[in-house]
Amino acid sequence: MSAIEFDNVGRLFERDGRSFPALDGVDLTVADKEFVALVGPSGCGKTTCLRMAAGFEAPSSGRVLVGGAPVPGPGPDRAVVFQQFALFPWKTVADNVAFGLRNKGMAAPERRDRIAAIIKLMGLDGYETAFPHQLSGGMQQRVAIARAYVLDPQVLLMDEPFGALDAQTRVVMQEELVRIARINPRTVLFITHAVEEAVYLADRVAVMTQRPGRIKEVLDVRAIRAAENWDRHARVEDVMDLESFVHLRTHIWRSLREEKVGGER
């Protein structure tokens, strides 16, 4: 059974009394513990896909299933990491991370252990009592990822989580996410418009068309990553220099460029 399933999903938007399609027949499955990146031209509806999996929006046609069941609404089994972090500025780092666990009614001692472990994993030690605005953007996003990871969710939904970060921080966070994903694999749907990020992080990359968005093609990165042994390189730039990486990246770029031209008529 797949962890996330988009089954012929369409989505209409209303504007000025007229409805126009944002998504048209999206078919995509994410297997258990699989990391799938969704790339596409801006406005193609990739964020809408994620928001439907999260339960913030409902499909106009077709079905969005998580764990085999239709998504009922937002909930802690489908944790979201937002581009703009969306932390609670009035809560400390530890309280931000604890909030979801308190909602679950977890007892304080167990909660403390879980929080301590995730804070260590995310490299947030020493910042437990800081407020979000005292941290850099990269550190704030670590808190947001910790807040999602600590719930031990069925799926993790990441909506351009590194889009608001500067280039250097972004690279560090990509390496961190790979490190954490190896220690603690999760089912991840990852939205990005950065092709290299998608290829570096994902097991599979799904490319979307211009609006109304559909899945244009899905590339299996996992086989190439294993065959070329990308993981022997600790640094993003070393992986990105490999011929197999460049080849994949260029292929996806070309695929997206076709869409851009098509959309500009």
Binding site: F88, F99, G100
Partner: peptide
């Protein structure tokens, strides 16, 4: 986003 984050976290 902040309200969505709260709902996603299962807040009563």
């Amino acid at each position: 986003n902040v309200i969505e984050a709260a709902r996603m976290l299962g807040t009563g």
